[in-house]
Nucleic acid binder design. Structure first.
Lengths: 201, 201
DNA sequence: GACTTAATTCTTACAATGTAAATTTATGCC
DNA sequence: GGCATAAATTTACATTGTAAGAATTAAGTC
């Protein structure tokens, strides 16, 4: 009988490959990283990764899933460090911005890509859902506490859009001094809070 | 002496090629369109386009420049159709949204791409500047008229970020009912106006 | 410990891409 | 008509993702 890979060995290889892919994508961008480079980074022959991933897209899915999970963890950590709902909202916004600007390539892979059949990768779907859920968790508390009125899902999407827009403009190189994502995001979020409280329901 | 292309002939070929590129990019996306396809679309051999454009990136620059100009024209048209500054602001916002959702591929080429040496294509730089200038033109009038207070450039960037974020989320497939770019953009813009007026300077 | 056998890995191969280099074609002056 | 030369085509090459085939290797049997 031949040697058979244990599940642990398979997982370990997949993880090492995702490590390398994450690093190389961040360094050179998704398009610029080749299957051959990934294989070389692990010291295996060019076709070996195909034993562990269906194709390049499956590797992308794994990297994205990990990014969504890291993102969720960063926001969850921020959530714990605020005592009032408003503090938590600000902490989450700041954490979102810090993640995006600190890991721009990961952020683009998460939110700026239309992966054809995303549904084929359940771990990716789950990680995406987790990240999304964390983003709005604190808003529910704010509505409950009466700090702000309205549909929490709608308000969450409004802040998300605003933050995302500022970030995307900066990452695409469309902003020049004295404007940057951090400043714009701060101004927009402040103004939105004002507007939400000024709004008669 | 050999036949020499007139400037008109060169311009005409370039224009036909940009026509084809625009259409094919919109249909299949930038990455999926090959130089060979572009050549075939004009009925010439694969290398002929290289007589008129340095490389694929130069074609992209030309397509982007044209998109920026179309965008500017759409916004300028909207500007003319409003009588009060507030009407004009709403019309421009609506025109921006309509352009983005009506020509999603063009929009992504304009605002979601970091073209390496953009500065090497003056027509692109100029078209981009024109589009940007149009976006903020009406805000200056609003500030002058005292409809709203603050730095017009900052306020312009705030609305831009918010609109862009909602659009990008939709184009990346990140929004699902009952949320879409149009609704989010409307809610955000309304709330921002409220917040700006509520804000003591 | 040698042998068998199938999972794993590596090597080879191919079609597609952007584009460089070589070749052919066509024009207008002598 | 022949020639110089711009334009266009043809040929060629390195690089990519990945399919197919060949080689390697390790576990169980004797």
């Amino acid at each position: 009988m031949p040697r058979v890979l244990t599940n642990e060995a398979v997982d370990e290889f997949r993880e090492r490959l995702v490590d390398a892919a994450e690093r190389l994508f961040a360094q050179h961008g998704l398009e610029a990283v080749t299957m051959r480079q990934l294989a070389a980074a692990l010291g295996v022959s060019p076709m070996t990764p195909y034993r562990y991933f269906a194709d390049k897209e499956a590797i992308l899915a794994a990297v994205r899933a990990r990014a969504f999970n890291r993102h969720a963890e960063a926001l969850e950590l921020a959530l714990e460090h605020g005592h009032t709902p408003l503090e938590r909202a600000n902490a989450v916004g700041r954490a979102y911005l810090d993640f995006a600007l600190g890991h721009p390539e990961a952020y683009k892979l998460m939110f700026d890509i239309k992966q054809p059949n995303e549904a084929a990768h359940p771990e990716l779907v789950e990680a995406g859902a987790r990240s999304r859920a964390t983003m709005t968790a604190h808003l529910l508390a704010m509505i409950d506490d009466g700090v702000v009125k309205g549909d929490p899902d709608l308000i969450g999407h409004m802040f998300w859009s605003a933050l995302h827009g500022a970030i995307q403009l900066q990452l695409a190189g469309m902003l020049s001094p004295p404007f940057d994502a951090k400043r714009l995001a701060g101004e927009i979020m402040r103004t939105l809070w004002l507007g939400l409280n000024a709004d008669p329901v």
